[in-house]
């Protein structure tokens, strides 16, 4: 069991769904992104996803693309992700890294896993790495007890749901719809069905991401998922406000709205 699964199970014990917040490290700067993550934790995010910016983020929509591009222009490096992980862990929240495969591969998978463990991280979400392509990563992560969090999508076949669930630890990330990250007016109607199918395939914990941006949407997803994953709506708070205090105020307000949502209080 990891800090992540302990927390998710405890939250389930409270009869609610967890709020999982994503922010990319390095946007608008490493220091400010770390303060933003700490702010989210203080304002009610249960689990933090530290995004590692990548030059070719094919699963991300415009909001996260822009943030990642600026983080890279600002000179963000892989090691900065571990700095952020350490800070979030110290703030008391379980933390996972979300990274495309090539940066992990170039850093060295064993070294990546070692540094993630040392920083207090629970595992990694790999949006462009499916379990059938992840042999090397699994060999590095397993002995270190890191959670390997893979995605399922509305297009996943039964066979692939089973395969993915079998190789996933921590939680299964269910993509609410076919598409990329971004704020949307409504969450995919197929999400509930996908969560049910993923549970039927044996998943202990299923969290839903893509397109959740309001407290009402969070409340809706919280009915059937173990966790609600929000990214773009949080990144937007930092994109919209140059001034750090204003950005953190907006982030606090958005986090509180979502935290009420996962408690069915919206």
């Amino acid at each position: 069991m990891s800090a992540l699964t302990d927390r998710l199970d405890a939250i389930r014990g409270e009869g609610r769904s967890a709020l999982i917040g994503y922010l990319p490290v390095g946007f608008p700067s490493v220091e400010r992104s770390v303060r933003a993550m700490e702010t989210m934790v203080a304002a009610g995010v249960d689990v933090v996803e530290v995004g590692l910016p990548y030059s070719d983020p094919v699963m991300d929509g415009p909001t996260i693309q822009v943030a990642a591009e600026r983080a890279l222009q600002g000179g963000t490096h892989i090691a900065d992700a571990f700095t952020a992980v350490r800070a979030v862990a110290d703030a008391g929240a379980p933390v996972v890294v979300m990274s495309y495969y090539n940066p992990m591969l170039q850093y060295g998978l064993e070294r990546f896993a070692d540094d993630l463990v040392a920083a207090g991280g629970s595992g990694a979400i790999t949006p462009d790495l499916t379990p059938d392509a992840a042999g090397l990563w699994l060999s590095a992560a397993r002995p270190r007890h890191l959670d390997t969090i893979f995605l399922v999508a509305p297009s996943s076949t039964q066979e692939r749901l089973h395969m993915t669930v079998a190789e996933t630890t921590g939680f299964v990330y269910a993509a609410s719809l076919m598409g990329v990250t971004g704020e949307r007016a409504s969450v995919g109607a197929g999400a509930e069905q996908l969560v049910a199918a993923t549970r039927a395939a044996g998943a202990a914990r299923v969290c839903v991401g893509l397109g959740v941006s309001t407290g009402a949407q969070a409340a809706d997803v919280a009915r059937f998922a173990d966790g609600v994953i929000v990214g773009s709506a949080l990144v937007r708070c930092l994109l919209d406000h140059e001034d750090e205090d204003a950005a953190l105020d907006a982030l606090r307000a958005k986090t509180a709205e979502l935290a009420r949502g996962v408690r069915g209080e919206s």
Partner: peptide
């Protein structure tokens, strides 16, 4: 070679 893609695209591939 290989196939390093999001799960969402695997069915189409």
């Amino acid at each position: 070679g290989g196939r390093f893609v999001p799960e969402a695209l695997v069915a189409a591939l």
